[in-house]
Design a protein around this nucleic acid. Sequence first.
DNA 1: ATACATACC
DNA 2: CACTGGTATGTAT
Length: 443
Amino acid sequence: MALNDNKAGMGNLDKERINKVIYEMSKGSKYYENEQRKEEQVKAKIAAQHKQIQSFDAREIEKSELQADAMLAAIEEMRDFSRTIVHIDMDAFYAAVEMRDNPSLKNIPMAVGGSAMLSTSNYEARRFGVRAAMPGFIAKKLCPDLVIVPTNFDKYRQVSKDVKEILLQYDPNMCPMSLDEAYLDITQHLAERKNFDAEQKTFRTADGEQRMFGIAPNMMLAKVCSDFNKPNGQYLIPFNRQAVMDFVKDLPVRKVCGIGRVSCSMLGAMGVVTCSDLFRKRGLLLKLYSAISFNYFLRVSAGVGSTSVQRGDDRKSMSTERTFAEINRPAELFAKCYELCEALVEDLKKENLKGKTITLKIKTIKYIVRTKAHSLLNATQDVQLLYSTARDLLRTEIRLCSPEPLRLRLMGKSRGEQKLPFGAVKPKTDGRHTLLNYFKSPK
DNA sequence: ATACATACC
DNA sequence: CACTGGTATGTAT
């Protein structure tokens, strides 16, 4: 429940005061109670892990270490310095666009979002501890002069599109991860530019946005780099093994994309804080984690990541969800359910897609989240069929609750991709957490 | 296949 | 007045 200071712009602020304000605003709320419940769950997981660790003997761990070393040798084989990968990240993107369009916002603390939730904040606001994913009303407590500008996605989409146009000149296979970040493989671009100084690569865009670059031999490292030297900095990891190992040596695992708050505490509980700790504890980690996770940890410890920048295949799911003031009367719950089906179908039709697995997501006023899914025999984009499926799932939930009412604050629908029958399996060069990837046959 | 958790922006 | 919304993926059953 404390301030997340993993990100940039939070260097010299009064964390203690900020955390106190956040706590005062949150404590006693249903939200806070749920967060505490979740924290307890994580603690339980750590305790279970601890118990498991105590059941291992030293010889087992040594054996696992040897096995891990063999895996590491295979990873080392795949180490590749032939590509130059760039990760670009538009700093405080939404806020930057708003400041561009209204310069009077430039020198005052400002954030984009609403009183319920902020998407991002400018650097003035960050000085007060105001940051992305913070509710606006808490931000206002931290910084009473904060100006909150409503989100204007269409505008950000347009700017994002303009920037992508430019990036495409550097890499036609450029891979956007969101409106404000992308990976590029500029190997080809560099080869075509003679006398190009690798240490002085710069991108020029006409938009005036600030942006960060990470330049490295792979995507994992490039992403970490782009977070260095904020704001508007760039950071390059030299293309040799020693430089990579030096970089990774003291790098906190939390900085690595894919290792979040929970994984970080689980690892921390066994003394793994930096990437080199992942190597140090490889014997133990092999025994504790799945093959997928362990392989990923080993790669991180070696500073090895994907070198293939390419857009993913088709989308795998599409969803719509909405938060609202409590609803508990069945008639209203069903009406909301129908409304969401309509909204989802509208989105499906925009992309001419159908769904096979319908998932109903609900969040109670205590913030408990439940999902119920049902797979149809055939994919559909028909509102009535979607609704009748979702309605049945909702009815079951209402009955399970009764005679108490089902008291909700959120409802959502999603549709899972129709599984295509003729998928071939191909080995994936990398993947954050996956070893295998499924090829989808074209529609 | 289903449910739930984690992670990312 | 008030703690999002969208997508992917891992883990467990």
